[in-house]
Amino acid sequence: MANTVKVSPTADAEYYRTLSRESGFSPLLVLDCERLRQQYRSLVAALPGVDMYYAIKSLPNMDVLHTLAAEGAGFDIATSAEAEMLAQVAVSPRHTIHTHPIKRPRDIIDALRYGCTTFVVDNPEEIAKFEPYRQRVSLLLRVSFRSPSALVDLSRKFGCAPQEVDTLLDEAARLGIHVKGLSFHVGSQSLDSSQQVKAIDTCNALIRARHARGLPPLSVLDIGGGFPASYGQGEVDIEAYCEPIRAALDRLPEFVNVLAEPGRFLSAPSMTGVATVMGRALRDGRWWYYFDDGVYGSYSGQLFDHTHYPLEVFSDSAERFPSVLSGPTCDSIDVIAEDLELPELQIGDLLVGHSMGAYTAASATDFNGFPRARVVLVNQHMDEALTG
């Protein structure tokens, strides 16, 4: 997968130039709160009856949290730092779950102090950590389902095998710890929902078998995240993607409450990157353009998230030249895209990256002393644009 680059008329850059000028800063990440609301509402409509818990790790931004809290979202936290962020948002801790399967003792204490009482586990050692808190917590047991089509295979690192579920549930019962349900995450950015359907059906069988034996019911199923975002291959039809998932959920017993942990689908389309050419050089017949953002900054997702973003440059020229788009640091790995045919760009010209909300600002660094992109808000209250 490689970056796609669109060449647009120079006049189309004025919107982004205005944002840069008004903020007095480059690079920028433009957060469109209305697009975030639209993404959330479309997923809720596609999965009616499923409680949504936003995966904070995809874009840990206070304005994102406030916007989604106003929409009625719950929140998926994985660290003490994320709990500290949520403490500043008007959301009940009862609408949070702690989904990191492996936790430090401090993570458990901090989450309980905040008010989160639902935790995900996937092995006997992790279950045992909750024995001192067995009167205060409920657990979800994470089951592993590998997905060959997922861009990021999270079940490689976390989750127990389906055949281990009964043994782990028995261990929790021996320790007096309540396990209220199962969870899974089939991986990220698969355009095929068949693995989610398979995981739901397998969990359905486990839930029904336990219920038939007269054992305490598993009343929660957390179907994780992984709902795909569009990265220039056309808009994702979330209604069509979720149709088989809805059918599988309809086969669950009526007493099962379903949760989901959307991250990328909500955050990715909601943010746009804006970088500026800070230098250029003609090397071996190719124009090298050096931008003030790169793979150590907002484009970090190209390394850590295996994602390449739809790019846009602005020119009125029809001529094209071999080109390389580079980041600002002194490291040779800091290249955004190469082997491109682009019009000649000048110092001060812009590069716009689309769908740059997920795992961009979240994993950006200050390497080499270059500052991270500043976040600019638009449509915060539907009819106004603010910066922050």
Rank of each mutant, 00 (worst) to 15 (best):
T4S: 14
A11F: 08
R21V: 13
E22H: 09
G24P: 12
F25L: 07
P27L: 00
L28P: 02
L28R: 01
L28W: 05
L31D: 01
D32Y: 02
C33N: 05
C33Y: 01
R35N: 08
R37F: 01
A46L: 08
Y54P: 05
I56R: 00
M62W: 01
M62P: 03
D63W: 00
H66N: 05
A69V: 09
G74V: 11
G74A: 12
S80T: 15
M85S: 06
L86T: 06
S92R: 09
P93K: 00
R94A: 14
T96G: 00
I97L: 13
H98V: 01
H98N: 10
H100Y: 13
R104V: 06
R106D: 14
D110S: 09
A111D: 04
A111P: 01
Y114Q: 07
G115S: 11
G115V: 07
T118Y: 03
F119T: 00
F130E: 00
R134H: 07
V137H: 00
L139M: 04
L140F: 09
F145L: 03
R146N: 11
S149I: 09
G159D: 08
E164W: 09
L168R: 09
L169N: 02
L169E: 04
G176A: 03
V186D: 02
Q196F: 07
D201E: 15
T202C: 15
L206G: 06
R208I: 08
V220E: 05
I223L: 04
S230M: 06
G232Q: 12
D237H: 12
D237K: 11
A240D: 14
C242S: 05
E243C: 07
R246P: 01
E254H: 14
F255A: 10
V256G: 07
A260R: 03
V277S: 02
A281L: 14
D284A: 13
Y290E: 04
Y290P: 02
F291L: 13
F291W: 09
D292G: 05
D293S: 15
G301N: 06
Q302L: 10
L303R: 14
F304Y: 15
F304W: 12
H308T: 14
L311K: 03
F314N: 04
R320D: 05
L325A: 09
S326V: 12
G327R: 05
D331R: 12
V335Y: 05
Q346G: 12
I347M: 12
L350V: 09
L350P: 02
H354E: 10
M356L: 15
S363H: 12
A364P: 00
F370H: 13
P371T: 04
P371C: 01
R372T: 08
V375T: 15
L377K: 11
N379F: 13
H381G: 05
D383L: 14
E384H: 12
